[in-house]
Design a protein around this nucleic acid. Structure first.
Lengths: 199, 199
DNA sequence: GTCATGGTTGACAGTGACTGACATGTTCGG
DNA sequence: CCGAACATGTCAGTCACTGTCAACCATGAC
């Protein structure tokens, strides 16, 4: 019987990871990302610097690692969408999870730190790029399952996905610039409405 | 008469910067970005590590700094396009300079290193983001000059620009994936043809 | 209970990117 | 030829990150 403890270990691991993440984020928001050292974070949770790095590969991952969860949710969303739905609509639906009520007040300072810290912004864009790869994969599979597979060299799924994520980033910018008042989803709607996929 | 030597100084500065850049790039391509240390680069050009950092703020800048020139060219291009031209077409034309013949053979290994090295890829995406900001600005100015300014909260210019650059990145991916045979411009054409701006 | 065992942790040393400070040239203007 | 910029080297220091090792649990076998 092996699979008995692994579950527990995994759970405690997640718990510690979560604790570090929350403490770190509080410090980042309070005094800035660059001004916060890993030692500060370690001290805040009562661990050694070394152990912090056992839970997060890099300092940036403490922040952008939160997107891994979001990525999984996006892929789930994509798989449960009607296979015949227009791709552009499905892509728009992926972003719903970034916009759930109850998270907005928390999400806003995070967004701000990420967009204002060059190192974090770069890491964020890269993570979005990774997510896009997975989304493109899922889109190809879906099309194949629906009997209308894309040709291997057809740039359509990749281009549409890239454009959609580009619109997302554009929407986040204007959302933050206007003080994060109206829901982010509205900004995404407006951004994505400026384009249509060609038949 | 002050502006006599400054011009010379600036020229020699550019020359040294260029020399460092070329030496570094050769090393990056040969043995990889991560495996190349700043000391290696300094030794290759016969300088101290400190001096290398006087010409480039960061290691990544040695590579992605080359895009600053491209960015200027893009903005020039944008300003010389007919003001009435559809935005999507103008945006497509920005990317022509990345595709000039005679640079392709050189550009390919660079592209490869950038896309395959996480740190560089992140820096690259961030630089593209900066360029987008400038492009959006130019688009707004152009529309205003043509008597059809965008409303301040109109996401159109930002969204279209982000989508176009997303298509560019998508095109680079498939271009590299297919061995960089046909010109990059063709890949960009195909990617951007999958979308149309909504009237 | 005891003991092997896998997984977690802290302490320590080391690398590499980067920064600040200072001292030494080299160059250019007068 | 002299003084003021400017470029460069050296050195010391910070911080992110990695490898290693020894101590330390918790669990399961006996």
């Amino acid at each position: 019987m092996k699979p008995k403890q692994p579950a527990l270990r995994e759970r405690t691991r997640r718990a510690v990871q979560r604790e570090i993440g929350e403490a770190a984020l509080a410090l980042f928001v309070e005094r800035g990302y660059e001004a916060t050292t890993i030692d500060d974070i370690a001290a805040a949770v009562g661990m050694s610097q070394r152990s912090v790095f056992r839970y997060f590969a890099t300092k940036e991952e403490i922040v952008v690692g939160k997107l891994d969860l979001a990525a999984d949710q996006m892929l789930d969303t994509l798989r449960t969408r009607p296979p015949g739905e227009p791709v552009w609509v499905s892509l728009r639906r992926l972003f719903d999870i970034l916009d759930e009520p109850g998270q907005q007040h928390i999400a806003e300072p995070i967004h701000r730190v990420v967009l204002e810290t060059p190192a974090l912004h770069a890491a964020y864009l890269q993570k979005l790029q990774q997510i896009q790869d997975a989304v493109v994969d899922a889109l190809r599979q879906r099309a194949a399952a629906a009997g209308r597979p894309y040709a291997v060299d057809d740039p359509t799924p990749r281009a549409l996905t890239a454009a959609a994520f580009g619109c997302l980033v554009a929407a986040q910018h204007s959302w933050l610039a206007s003080g994060a008042t109206s829901p982010l989803g509205d900004a995404v709607d407006r951004a994505m409405a400026t384009l249509t996929p060609r038949a």
